[in-house]
Write a protein that binds this DNA or RNA. Structure first.
Length: 261
DNA sequence: ATGACTTATCCAATAAGA
């Protein structure tokens, strides 16, 4: 099976690119984040022409996540166990069982700045994610993939000095990732197609992409048994090139797991 | 060149992103 995750920064604005990328890359299951549309407005008919079923969770202007699958899409769950809000719960997590794999697409809150109420919200949200993982892990191959808005190590940002006092690199955020790993998940680190860091995000401003001023904040976490079957994992930085890209690149992961109906 | 912000929304100035 080929699994993938991509923060598309508006599925409406990105639809032509998404369709081209699906047709070329041919993933079996795709986790999308920042669809920025309601579930009803998701272009499900367009992706259905390429063979994908859709489950979307969105409410309009911001956030929003979805799952696309060619191998079945069952037991859809919208939201985490006791998911906190800001102040109300936002559409940032959707889970489903696809071809025998239990898979979650997540968009972790940004946090804005340490000390901000949004930062406390981010940490609480990650705790709810950990609790959801703990409740579900075990019976089936398991994946949580998406935009975690946390760089796991200093090696996952272009310059640690540029992030002093900023979110995405603080010990509590990194401890929240460690807690997910302690619950039984493995960080499937993709290979970069170019340069030596598997960055997944580059700011639109100041030529960050051509200068490779990036961050690895999109992550693919799998249970240990599934992670052991990974034959390839890469960041598709080519999808960040050209006119009107998302500011994030997709991660593509091939696993030996065969489709289970 | 991979190239110097982009998105949706009360349609235009703003909030949000990280």
């Amino acid at each position: 099976m080929r699994l993938a995750t991509w923060n598309v920064n508006s599925v409406t604005a990105r639809l032509p690119r998404l369709l081209d990328w699906l047709a070329t890359t041919k993933p079996d299951v795709v986790c999308l984040q920042e669809i920025k549309c309601s579930a009803e407005a998701f272009p499900a008919a367009a992706v259905a022409e390429l063979g994908y079923e859709t489950a979307a969770h969105g409410d309009g202007r911001w956030n929003g996540v979805a799952l696309l699958s060619k191998v079945g899409l069952d037991a859809v769950t919208r939201g985490l166990v006791d998911q906190p809000g800001f102040p109300d719960p936002e559409p940032r997590a959707i889970g489903a069982t696809c071809g025998g794999v239990r898979i979650w697409s997540v968009y972790v809150p940004n946090g804005r700045e340490p000390g901000h109420a949004h930062y406390a919200y981010k940490l609480a949200w990650l705790t709810a994610l950990r609790n959801t993982v703990a409740a579900e892990l075990g019976p089936a191959p398991f994946v949580v993939a998406g935009d975690f808005n946390v760089a796991p190590t200093d090696d996952d940002v272009w310059d640690p000095a540029a992030f002093v006092g900023a979110t995405h690199v603080t010990p509590p955020e990194r401890e929240a990732l460690a807690s997910l790993r302690e619950a039984g998940l493995v960080d499937v680190v993709p290979r970069p197609l170019k340069y030596d860091h598997p960055f997944t995000y580059w700011d639109y401003r100041a030529g960050a992409f051509p200068k490779n001023l990036g961050m690895r904040i999109d992550l693919f976490y799998a249970d240990a048994a599934l992670a052991a079957t990974v034959s390839d994992a890469y960041v598709d930085r080519d999808a960040r090139k050209g006119k009107t890209p998302s500011d994030h690149a997709p991660i593509v992961v091939d696993v030996a797991q065969s489709v289970v109906a």
